[in-house]
Design a protein around this nucleic acid. Structure first.
Lengths: 107, 107
DNA sequence: AAGATCCATAACCAGAAAGTTATGGATTTA
DNA sequence: TAAATCCATAACTTTCTGGTTATGGATCTT
């Protein structure tokens, strides 16, 4: 199985980090400074969160002069979607199997 | 906005706990003892994880004599699906907006 | 060139969290 | 009734993690 969901879940588990990612999704590319302003934490904390998001593939960075622009990379959420539908799928399969069983018993 | 995704992400971030949930999804209802066997951790640890999963609404428990049966509640994953598609949606909206802008400029 | 700004990294601290062993209540078995 | 089994909780330890302040390199401004 892919180890991808693990890193994604761990990365998105922190509220501050997830809020940063959400802002990037909603509002598009932002500099570290802009993100820091409404994050409620210090600039180094934001930088660290951005590093974690980047390592999980959830954001990209683009250097421009002395500032760094970050943007969301929502395709990185795909393993999460896959995992979720897989879980739902297992569930559904077992329901189907039960259904089949009941039908055969009914005959 | 709903605080639901937060608890879900936090709960599913732990690999051991997620593995337990996955097994319940794949194989259906299990007792604590059965889950403990292939979990790699002690029985109290499994009980604690099951408690966390239950609090997040991801599992149900059913008492039968001295054993407790747990089963997955995959509907609890819905807020996760919602959150994910919302993020993807924001992204798409911004792409559309950009597209519109370019079209208008093109005129 | 000097000063200011932006950001990343280092070093450190405190609280959260996952694991353990010990224990006890409830139920089943002998 | 006595012993064994199942599970949850308590108490404790250790590790991980998110936060801070301090600092420095790079770039922009004056």
């Amino acid at each position: 199985m892919s180890a991808a969901p693990d890193l994604l879940f761990r990365t998105l588990a922190d509220p501050t980090r997830r809020a940063i990612f959400e802002r990037l999704c909603r509002e598009g590319e932002q500099t570290v400074g802009a993100l820091t302003l409404r994050s409620g934490v210090s600039q180094p904390a934001v930088s660290k969160h951005l590093g974690a998001l980047k390592q999980a593939g959830l954001v990209r960075d683009r250097h421009e002069g002395r500032q760094t622009h970050y943007s969301a990379q929502p395709g990185a959420l795909n393993p999460l979607v896959d995992w979720t539908s897989q879980m739902a799928g297992f569930w559904q399969n077992r329901l189907d199997a039960l259904d089949d069983l009941l039908k055969r018993m009914d005959q």
